[in-house]
């Protein structure tokens, strides 16, 4: 564990609390993509099956359980109690293409041919693009509530710190994970536009609104 990875994981954790806070405070999930949230649930369930086969640390297991449980809870909140506030008409990205694409990539370039590693690879490819429905929705509406943009920023910062974690691990441990690196780099690049708008607008106390 290094400082980049620890802060990244904590930011990932924080992003989920920010999202739950937004839903609770505004009593609404308006502007939040249910498709992105459902994709994250699929990502966590398919990646963390090793909970049953491999023990790394208490930290590792607790985080995995939290990510699975919290993503299931968020999907439930948006699906049932907060359904009337869900902006379905702007959440129109075709998420099924992302699932099919990630599945094809997982089968074409799996980490190994063990079923758990194919699912792991699928989850890595899917996580790389899972934010797209959310970014697409923000582009369609042209703006987002400030707290929603904080949520997306925390997620993007978590990914950016993972890149630094990999550089650090490569030089200190000789650690290599090409699949995670390529997918992680793609994932971080997807946030580039968002980062720019967030830093130039939201940080100055203005709405996340497209120029």
């Amino acid at each position: 564990m290094n400082i980049f990875r620890l802060v990244a994981d904590l930011l990932h954790l924080a992003s989920i609390f920010i999202l739950l806070l937004k839903i609770q405070q505004t009593k609404s999930c308006a502007g939040v993509s249910l498709k992105t949230q459902a994709l994250y649930f699929v990502v966590f369930v398919t990646r963390y099956l090793d909970l049953f086969t491999h023990f790394y640390s208490v930290y590792n297991s607790l985080m995995k359980l939290f990510f699975i449980a919290s993503s299931a809870y968020i999907v439930y909140l948006m699906w049932k109690p907060y359904r009337p506030t869900y902006s379905a008409s702007t959440d129109t990205f075709r998420a099924e293409f992302l699932i099919v694409g990630a599945a094809l990539l997982g089968l074409a370039f799996p980490d190994s041919w063990h079923i758990l590693d194919i699912l792991w690879s699928f989850s890595i490819y899917l996580e790389a693009v899972a934010i797209l429905p959310q970014l697409f929705q923000m582009t369609r509406t042209g703006e987002a509530e400030t707290i929603t943009s904080h949520y997306v920023f925390a997620l993007g910062a978590y990914r950016a710190l993972y890149l630094m974690n990999w550089i650090y691990r490569y030089y200190t441990e000789g650690y290599m994970d090409v699949i995670a690196w390529v997918a992680g780099a793609v994932q971080t690049i997807l946030y580039a536009d968002f980062f720019y708008i967030y830093l130039t607008r939201v940080m100055r106390g203005r709405l996340f609104s497209l120029p």
């Binding site: 990875r5 491999h54 990510f67 190994s112 063990h114 590693d117 993972y162 995670a180």
Partner: peptide, 10 residues
Amino acid sequence: SSSRPVHDEL
């Protein structure tokens, strides 16, 4: 199966 890659990251 001991040659399977280890994924210690979240």
